[in-house]
Amino acid sequence: MEDTAVAVHPEKKQMNNLKRGLTAIYVIWLREFKRFWRDAPRRIGSFVQPLVYLFLLGTGLQAAFKVFGGGQTDYVTFMFPGIVAMTVLFTSVFSAISILWDREFGFLKEVLVSPVPRSSVALGKIVGGATTAFLQGLVLLALAFLPNFFGFSLSTFGKCLALMPVILLLSLGMTSLGVAIAANMKSFEGFPIVMNFILLPLFFLSGAMFPLQGLPKWMDVLTKLNPLTYGVDLIRGIALKGVDIGGMMNPLQGLSRDVVSKIPPEVITALKNSMPVSSEFKAQAFPVWLDVLVLLGFSTVMLAIAIWQFSRQE
């Protein structure tokens, strides 16, 4: 007994700190993941909810557009990338509630009193939450292969691959936001209220549910200030690349490519200008580099804030 005790402490203490930090992140991540995986209702529920939004709300709104004269817009397809973004946003942010559960049930004490740096604990929580959000994003993404969306093709596969890092980055940023707020809260009933207060405006102003076009000036400014706008823009840009979801104002709607190519360009321009609203739907409103830059910046800043806020608590 005595000789092992000696072996554990003085000698092995030289084990470098980075390795220890990473071990801690890994084991905290592992615990989060195990808890998520064992909770079947949570797993299934969080997958079903976005489907409800997509198929019930999406189909309903699409019908509404027809009633109001919207024509051929494929709203469900438009909404699909938005729903992927929504799922990632909400799952990420609310995963941080585990910090409050751990506080309530005492497990947080076990972690906080251990010789693990607080930053590792925060990172473990963030990576853990982001993993669950990422996985749910992936499950939804798999729907893209359905024939009513993009169909089973190499291009769909490529899109999914391209979307993975975007979803992961967004998950990390949003989980960090959740952790930063959870670190400052003592009661876990208050968390959803505060989170919804912050998250709903961010969500509605992000363009996940409707295109950010033709909005009043004040709202347009707000959407441009919202970092999530750029994340959603990137997701939709990638997902809807080369997909025609039909613009309600497109005068060439329904014409085949052969026919369109025979019409002189001046005529097309004239036709478009003659329509009541001249703007055409754009899947991606901002350049890709700007989207990527804002998303990277947002996630990095949120990560730093989360670690700082979590380490601050006594």
């Binding site: 072996a7 554990v8 092995k12 084990m15 220890r20 071990t23 801690a24 890994y26 084991v27 905290i28 615990r31 195990k34 808890r35 064992r38 909770d39 751990d102 049930f105 005492g106 497990f107 004490k109 076990e110 972690v111 251990s114 010789p115 693990v116």
Partner: peptide, 26 residues
């Protein structure tokens, strides 16, 4: 602690394993 501080959604073994990791038991 005076109040419980186990993760009751993990097994006993998993709780102990978690502890050996965060306390750097070789």
């Amino acid at each position: 602690f005076q109040d419980p501080s186990l993760d009751d959604r993990l097994t006993a073994l998993e709780n102990l394993e978690f502890h050996t990791y965060i306390y750097h038991v070789p």
